[in-house]
Simulated assay, not measured.
Amino acid sequence: MAELLTEDELTSALNHLSSWRRDGSAIVRTVELDSFAQAIQVVNRVAEIAENDDHHPDIDIRWRTLTFSLSTHSEGGLTAKDTALATEIDSVVDTFRSQA
């Protein structure tokens, strides 16, 4: 069972996750990739990580624009699971952007 982050913990985490913003009880990041195919590759890699972590983001796909939303629904808010997955998503996005 994951514990909810305190406001100070969340603020500190978001200082290191500069592409993410808080949206109520979730953190959200929108990213634009070079193509639809690249966006789907990112989604597929994030899906593999999410399955491995047993923690799944909400993902909105709009052509080559992806919006990731993270929240630990079972806990009713944000936990370290969310900030850890956000870090992993950032790494995936950075990897695919550097390949372009």
Results as ranks from 00 to 15, higher is better:
99 Q>D: 04
70 L>S: 08
28 V>P: 08
5 L>R: 04
11 T>C: 10
76 G>K: 01
64 R>S: 15
22 R>D: 09
81 K>R: 08
36 F>Q: 13
36 F>H: 15
45 R>C: 03
12 S>N: 14
63 W>D: 15
90 D>Q: 08
23 D>N: 12
86 A>K: 13
36 F>P: 14
82 D>I: 01
94 D>K: 05
91 S>E: 06
54 D>G: 09
33 L>I: 00
30 T>G: 13
4 L>S: 12
15 N>T: 10
61 I>D: 14
35 S>V: 05
99 Q>C: 02
63 W>Q: 15
53 D>Q: 07
10 L>C: 04
83 T>H: 10
54 D>S: 14
39 A>M: 00
19 S>M: 03
85 L>P: 03
24 G>M: 03
36 F>A: 15
69 S>D: 00
60 D>I: 06
25 S>E: 15
78 L>D: 09
88 E>V: 00
73 H>M: 07
13 A>Y: 05
11 T>A: 15
72 T>V: 12
59 I>R: 12
3 E>A: 14
82 D>V: 02
37 A>L: 05
82 D>E: 05
44 N>G: 08
92 V>M: 10
69 S>I: 00
46 V>L: 11
17 L>M: 11
53 D>E: 13
68 F>C: 10
41 Q>T: 06
32 E>N: 10
41 Q>L: 08
28 V>D: 04
15 N>C: 13
5 L>H: 05
51 E>T: 01
88 E>Y: 03
34 D>W: 05
96 F>G: 06
98 S>A: 09
54 D>I: 01
99 Q>N: 02
49 I>A: 06
53 D>M: 05
86 A>I: 08
49 I>P: 05
2 A>L: 06
69 S>Q: 06
61 I>R: 12
40 I>T: 14
86 A>L: 14
52 N>H: 05
